[in-house]
Amino acid sequence: MKLIGTFLFLFSSWAIASDHSHDHMDHSDMMHHSHEGHLHEKLVDGEKLIVNPEKFDKFISGLTNAQVAVVSVKGMVCDFCARGIEKTFQKDKRVKKIDVDLGQGKVLVAFDKGIDINFEDIKKKILANGQNATGMQIVSI
């Protein structure tokens, strides 16, 4: 009991000391770009697009007249936990395609060109799964 109690105390202290609620977003690395003709190996408004190149290329293959939101997500540490993100976005009829890049902590969401991609809406969808969206880049295909 002492071992568990000690562990619980340490864990709880860690939780309480952490002043960053999961409901609060970190906007420090949030970006919202919309430029055409950029792929993963290029810069988006001077910022490097950090994604798994193989996954990104596979994701955009077959996409035309589309734009891809590359969303940075915190807390997406397991496949099983990320399933809800896919399910939530799939309910949005504007979404053409979605994939998850666990290694880079990114969610790739494809929309038709011309659709206004709202980061606040993206954040709500990610938060509905219990994770935090911290930034977004948009790549036109």
Binding site: W14, G105, G130
Partner: peptide
């Protein structure tokens, strides 16, 4: 009930 969650870039903690 999820009493506490902390998300970071590479980890998640739950209570």
């Amino acid at each position: 009930y999820l009493a506490n969650r902390k998300n970071t870039q590479n980890s998640q903690r739950n209570l």
